[in-house]
């Protein structure tokens, strides 16, 4: 049952794979971005896990406590979360602009439109 002791790492791995799969396999841009977010979140959990010390207390200096959890990963991940939110914001903004320009946010439909346009462009020049 030792592997259960590392269940947080298992969650990290599972989330990461779900996210990564979504990024690669989904054609819908919003879904892609959500999957990307899941992927990032798994890394956040990885960092937070690293900071936890079993039996450690919150990192506030006080009497009678000798073991503290490491606060640094939390600080780092706060920054990373901000970065993640910004990424999602930019991604969604782009998705909206793409929807305005193409009328769709599905990869395959946009690719079909692009192929049409490419054909039209190259024909008269030949």
């Amino acid at each position: 049952m030792e592997w259960l002791g590392h269940f947080n790492y298992w969650i990290v791995v599972v989330l990461m794979m779900i996210g990564f799969y979504g990024v690669i396999a989904r054609g819908n841009m919003v879904k892609k971005i959500l999957a990307l977010n899941v992927f990032q979140t798994s890394v956040f959990i990885l960092f937070i896990s690293a900071g936890k010390i079993i039996g450690g207390s919150t990192p506030i200096l006080r009497e009678g406590v000798s073991a503290y959890s490491n606060p640094l990963p939390h600080v780092l991940i706060l920054t990373a979360i901000v970065v993640g939110v910004a990424t999602v914001a930019v991604g969604l903004a782009l998705a909206i602009r793409i929807r305005e320009a193409y009328g769709s946010i599905e990869d395959d439909r946009i690719a079909a439109q692009e192929a049409d346009e490419e054909n039209r462009q190259s024909e008269p020049s030949r």
Partner: peptide, 10 residues
């Protein structure tokens, strides 16, 4: 350009 930016973002 939007598609290129999106792809690069991912």
């Amino acid at each position: 350009a939007l598609l290129a930016a999106f792809r690069y973002l991912i």
